[in-house]
Amino acid sequence: MEKEEYLDLYHQMVLIRRIEEAAALLYQEGKIGGFLHLYIGQEAVSTGLISARLPQDRVITAYRDHGVAINCGVSADMVMAELLGKVTGTSHGKGGSMHMADVHKNFWGGHAIVGAHLPIAAGLALGDQYKGRNGVTICMFGDGATNIGYFHEALNLSKVWNLPVLWVCENNQYGMGTAVDRASAVSEIRQKAEGYCIPNERVDGMDIIKVRQAAERLLADIRSGKGPYFLEVETYRFSGHSMGDPERYRKQDEVKRWEENDPIGIYDHYLTSNKIAEEAELDQIDQKVAAEVQASIQFAETSPEPEPADLYKHVYFDK
């Protein structure tokens, strides 16, 4: 990677962190409705993964999707506008926090039924295979999703049809409030892929360099026609499952222990200790991000609401 790209990844991670912090405040002010699932703590996962993709590679994820949108190139303005339900948002205010997408950036959502997007991911990959395009579909999901039937059906089909999919399990240790070992018979989740003869590995999701390197290697393998691959990424969400989570299921010292492994701190240290960037350069990025987030809030707040007539728009494509 060139220096510029290293700094860009840092910028993306910090931007996600600050957008999420701002969103939490806006939620508390009542400006964001519905559910709000924050990506704080997991920034290295999608930033590392998605930075390794080629433009033709599709990305699809679950409901913790703001960060993934940013990594796919969606602007902070559009993410914030969608959170505020504005017509300028990614989904014209009809999707909300859990349903962001931008198909022109090959970001296919933002899906809120746990595990249901895995079969859809298989279909996206089928589309590319059918047309002879050399794209790979990157499908991200949580540890909780590996306990639902869709997961098993989709992995099985992907192997039977040799589909170009990178299955990425973001193991953040809890499906809502239920710890992995209380919900899954297999605590090392990548082992589930063994049941479908899908090659698999586990990577430290707090270290963006490790995620990026794994993603580069696996995407190249899949692109060469080797079929699906399964990557388990070990990570942790520093906030609750969603806003208003009482967090009775985990102890504060556990959270503190993980927070010492802050993915942004780890990357900051990597950049400075390897003399890729100076602390002052990173500070400059921090300041730029703060201004960007403020501007996105301004953009979202001053954007128009959807019109009442928009209610009936897009129920069907054909008139």
């Binding site: 298989a122 279909g123 990959a125 089928l126 589309g127 869709y150 059906e153 989709a154």
Partner: peptide, 17 residues
């Protein structure tokens, strides 16, 4: 795998098939 028959068909349709 009925869920995946429909789910994968949805994904393929999204790509233009």
């Amino acid at each position: 795998s009925e869920s995946t028959i429909i789910g994968a068909a949805i994904g393929a349709a999204l790509t233009g098939l």
